[in-house]
Design a protein around this nucleic acid. Structure first.
Lengths: 190, 190, 190, 190
DNA sequence: AATGAATGAGCCTTCATTCAT
DNA sequence: TATGAATGAAGGCTCATTCAT
């Protein structure tokens, strides 16, 4: 029973995701979701009590845990792996919720919610990246004068690419070029 | 008389701006604006027919014309001036409409509107910047291998900084550091 | 001054008539008339205080006083003249207010107003017609057994023709045919 | 359940009919109906989305299918039956929607809608009547020179009676008299 | 007289949410 | 659990009418 319920909940989430993908966040009503799922109004309320809770649950399910376990790799490798993670994050359409996510975040932010989401996401990655750069710097694999600054700079660029991808669209090739461009400034040439 | 009307319209815009700044875009209703302005429901409709039209007019009034006339300067100077323009754009709070703008854009984008705004804003600046870099590259003032790529990369970084500024906040010092970081990669050291 | 006022009032009436002709009665707002006349809102209220008063004044001006002075004619001639009056009334487009008039009358009637307009219009004409028929009957010009009934019957037919003309349109030839048809039933054939 | 819904819908229609009967068409608002039905604003919208749709549905329910199957009767009988149908149509008060119907039709007509309703209603009956008259003419039951013209004439008279009934009121006796009057002009006297 | 900005009542419509079944 | 009818608050919009200028 709880199993059946879980499956139904998942079904709602999957269906709702396509709705959010198409219409964004604020433009989606409970009715939209009810109709897309072909269930009853009341039925939906058994599982969720607002479009927001549905949306957030959708998000939770696409949170690719930012790869931290880069340990055991050389700094150069770790850097490449890390950038590849970001690339995936930028290009993934995960049912194209990205624009809806931005919409949601700015909506909440505008409305006075603290913008921890952006800050935390940014900081977490900056920290990992800084670590990699410092390690590479020490080992001589990489070259950078101010690793923390460089890391922040790279992460801003990634953020910009993400916005670009979520709006006007960015090709994989374009992302690759920028990643190489960044790498080329860090790799110690022999 | 038309003068008085213009002043009233401006009063509404100014008042509405503070409302948008506080509550974002979608969360603002005509009623909110009516109450903030302390005018009648119908009175507002004399001047504007939707929150969107009010919002867009607010935006129009904060359009900082992107400095194009960089002519007559050396590439190095032009670059510095250009980046300073961007810095201003990033840090300006113009009554803090930035988050609302992002919210609006993603809302419209989610709803299927083409996101020309982002694309155009990005492209225009990339073009100017590419021009500066190419000129500097030729004259020997600046160093860059692929000016167009470099320009795009810088602009993505700027976009990221802008998002950061609009959400978790970015200090002027932080912006300066990133601008210097970018410059340091371009300036030919003697 | 009063002369100028009268001219302006007439101008408003003439202009309003075209508006009513195009949009009917209830669909016309003070704003419509103000705009058509290109005068100010307040200006209109100096002369009229509702669309209804304007409409009624328009009507008054197209009231073709039903020709009563048929005296001095033979019954046959009087009948022909009378029917011709009706024909004119049926076919006249007097800027095509007819549909608007019906709309207005039914609107008011539905709303509880007494339907004197219809009753009076009908009765007045029935009386005149009855008189003519009786006279003709006595003089031997015309033939009818129950003049009052015949008159009522003819007037119902006229009313029907008028509805037809006001909605799906009726040609002059069609009207003529029906008038002849009616006449043929009354004229004493030698 | 759908049964209950059907009953509620019917209840709304029945209640709305009394409202339209009292106030006409355009003067009725959704609020009027909501209050008459003593249901909630939103509740009404579950079943209907405008006063117009309610009104039209009311009409549909009083559509007396025009008796076509007059076959198998002598022309004289068919004529009498046909006229009796019309009589019923003229006198029926079906909760007195007639004035509202005229109001509605002229309102729509004024507003530019083609008035097919009148035309079709008129034409359909003219055709049936013409058929009867022709048949009677051939069989010698009836007498008329131009059956089509006669039919149109009679139908105009009926239309006029209907207007009269819908506004100032017409007694059954009056209708009977006119029907007899018409018949007397058609029946071949032996 | 004339203007047209301003008012506020009133209607329309949508939606989240509840609740009897 | 599931249903979907029902509610009522909330926002959008229009219009007749007034009034300071």
């Amino acid at each position: 029973m709880s199993d059946k319920a879980a499956r139904k909940k998942q079904y709602i989430l999957d269906t709702a995701r396509t709705v959010f993908a198409k219409k964004g966040f604020k433009n989606v009503t409970m009715k939209d979701i009810v109709e897309a799922c072909d269930i009853s109004r009341g039925g939906l309320y058994i599982y969720f009590d607002s479009t927001e809770s549905i949306f957030l649950e959708c998000l939770k399910q696409s949170d690719t845990s930012v790869a931290d376990p880069l340990k055991g790799h050389s700094a150069g490798d770790a850097l490449v792996m890390f950038l590849n993670e970001l690339k995936k994050e930028i290009l993934t359409k995960d049912n194209d919720l990205s624009a809806a996510v931005y919409e949601y975040l700015f909506l909440k932010y505008s409305d006075g919610a603290s913008s921890d989401y952006f800050k935390e996401r940014y900081d977490a990655k900056v920290n990992i990246l800084t670590g990699i750069l410092e390690e590479g710097s020490e080992s001589g694999d990489l070259y950078c004068e101010d690793c923390a600054l460089t890391a922040r700079n790279i992460m801003y660029t990634m953020e910009g690419l993400k916005i670009g991808a979520a709006t006007f669209g960015v090709t994989e090739k374009e992302v690759d070029m920028h990643l190489l461009y960044i790498l080329s400034g860090l790799i110690v040439e022999e």
